[in-house]
Design a protein around this nucleic acid. Structure first.
Lengths: 348, 348
DNA sequence: TCAAATCGCGCAAACGTTTTCTCTGTTTTT
DNA sequence: AAAAACAGAGAAAACGTTTGCGCGATTTGA
């Protein structure tokens, strides 16, 4: 079904049909012809060809019905299966955009300019929310050139002219560690990834400042999933010269798996070892002991990102915004103060 | 940057540039001009306008570099935040497609033909994997008319001509319940959603066949997330006339929260009550006790869906395929046999 | 050496829209 | 009653590609 066919059926010219469909308040054409066209459109189930629309309009623009389309572009992650983080964020972006009347297409793009230089298939919608990093800066620059509006979520933009919504993972880690320290812990283990992990960097910097005990036998490098955490805890118990009084886990999933392992070998949390996680996933409050963690406000971040993008699309602001959302310490049961009665002994 | 500009810069016609970029084995044009064009394309960071391409090609078709683009369309879910199921599936689809050299765009579409009849913004790519249901059949039919290739994942197609990949949730539930029954349990509680939940239906049918004790005080209707499971367990303990010997939880997340609540009130799993979950999420094997569950092979389903779609795109098959993947019982620790030593007593 | 086949490349027509421009015929203004 | 404004709707040009066709120039085969 094309516009021309609709036009033929209604006995008017295609341009007239177009105008009728696009007039914001049904104010175009005579009542008679307008209703006839709409009737035929409905009967025939006609949907405009989005490619043709976007082509003609030189990139999608706001449409009267308010049904704009925005993109959400995900960088390449090493292991997509194990990493719900990005898709969780993408889902939050989608949810917020939908609630504001926009459609969303999330790009899991095989950007591989080495394989094929023209691999980028983005379709230049109203704008894009970009998450994560790509192979190289060249790709990112090309990507950037495709959109008139971009908001970066959780990362730095290449071009400082774009908006940026972040929650400092570095600071979040500091928050978690500070909490442990305020509870009297200094002998704190790290379980999680080391490479490319800002949380690890924050941990190390904290140690460098002598706020934590420096002991490389307390550091376990493992994938940030259930299996990783479980085996990570196992390794920690084996390799630690002296057991820690607290364990910092790079994610909640890791933390839950770690606690499970500790329980298995008879170590009680938090009486003997405190455990802290990161992210505040749904389950964190519903395991036992309930997990103390630092919440990365992903949903709020996504909401703000979408709002910022729309604001930019509508040209409500022009200067680049850098919005940092605060992380929040969620205190539950898995961390005990060394000086309190709950803590039963420094070393097992 | 357009093809024409590239052409102007290289001193050839735009059609020549197009052919050079699209020739599979660099076999077009003279070496000299070919290299010049590629050089300029690289320098200038030119990327073809995907809308124009798709428009001209009347829907995207396979391209030489193998960088096709396929869609993954998600139905509307009541509560996007709480429902990682769909986005997990979408992620699996994306991962598989990427590994096969295709790009993916996931549509979270605000399909609201009542608000605006032309809301569908799908861009007619190579084909689509469709998940979930939409407001009404009319929308689904329109959607269907937009694609030349569709595979339905986890649901029935509207039009029986399309392929369909499913894992019978009904059967999966039966598998779980059969396992409990084989362990001697008949007084089995249900915790999870009731409305639109095939798992609930399977439970009720099983009860109707007198395989389970019929007792409505054992049925708890709650959201299928951490909070829901936790409070659900609480409600169960209050309302049950006689406590169950086993609890069937509609999802693993619910099951983990339920176990946490049971532990909190001093009920031991599986010694006093067995718990079984569904889905086999990452964490299921890393909580304590390790959760017995039925695995819905979502990743395999997504893989098969993508392969089927590609097979259809390449016209390797024409008849509609209906592929049912088996679910798998994953036996861990949270279910004990009534007759075994592990089970300590029927009622607490 | 000449016709035939091949090659390299330009021309122009599509693809399905939106939008500017133009042309009627009607209504309002002075 | 003549001029000016206006509304309704068609014609046609664009948006950026791909692709069938055709035309010279080169290579091939006998």
């Amino acid at each position: 079904m094309t516009l021309k066919e609709i036009a033929a059926l209604s006995g008017v010219h295609s341009s007239t049909v177009s105008r009728i469909l696009n007039s914001p308040d049904d104010s175009f054409a005579s009542r008679e012809v307008r209703e006839k066209v709409w009737k035929i459109v409905r009967e025939t189930g006609y949907v405009p060809n989005h490619n043709a629309q976007s082509l003609r309009k030189r990139g999608t623009r706001e449409v009267p019905g308010g049904n704009g389309l925005i993109d959400c572009i995900l960088g390449r992650t090493k292991n997509m299966e194990d990493n719900p983080f990005f898709s969780g964020a993408a889902r939050a972006v989608a949810a917020q955009a939908l609630s504001l009347g926009y459609s969303v297409q999330v790009f899991y793009s095989a950007l591989e300019p080495e394989t094929h230089p023209l691999a980028i298939k983005s379709a230049r919608q109203l704008g894009a929310v970009v998450l994560g990093r790509f192979e190289n800066e060249a790709v990112e620059r090309i990507l950037e050139s495709q959109y008139k509006n971009i908001v970066y979520l959780g990362r730095n933009p290449i071009n400082a002219a774009w908006d940026q919504i972040i929650c400092d993972g570095y600071m979040a880690t500091q928050t978690a560690l500070e909490h442990l320290i305020s509870c009297g812990h200094t002998r704190i283990a790290y379980i999680g990834e080391r490479k490319h992990e800002v949380r690890y960097k924050a941990y190390m910097d904290m140690a460098a400042k002598d706020r934590l005990e420096k002991d490389s036998s307390l550091i376990v490098d493992c994938p940030q999933n259930g299996a990783g955490g479980f085996q990570g805890a196992e390794r920690l118990l084996k390799q630690a010269k002296l057991l820690p009084t607290a364990i910092f886990c790079a994610t909640d999933v890791v933390a839950i798996a770690v606690m499970s392992k500790l329980l298995e070998v008879g170590i009680r949390v938090p009486e003997q070892v405190s455990v802290i996680g990161m992210d505040n996933i749904d389950l964190a409050g519903y395991v036992s002991p309930m997990l103390t963690t630092v919440e990365i406000p992903m949903i709020e971040m996504a909401n703000v990102a979408v709002q910022t993008l729309i604001s930019r699309i509508k040209k409500l602001h022009r200067i680049p915004l850098k919005i940092t959302l605060p992380c929040k310490l969620v205190i539950r049961r898995s961390v005990a103060s060394i000086n309190s009665g709950a803590f039963e002994g420094m070393y097992i």
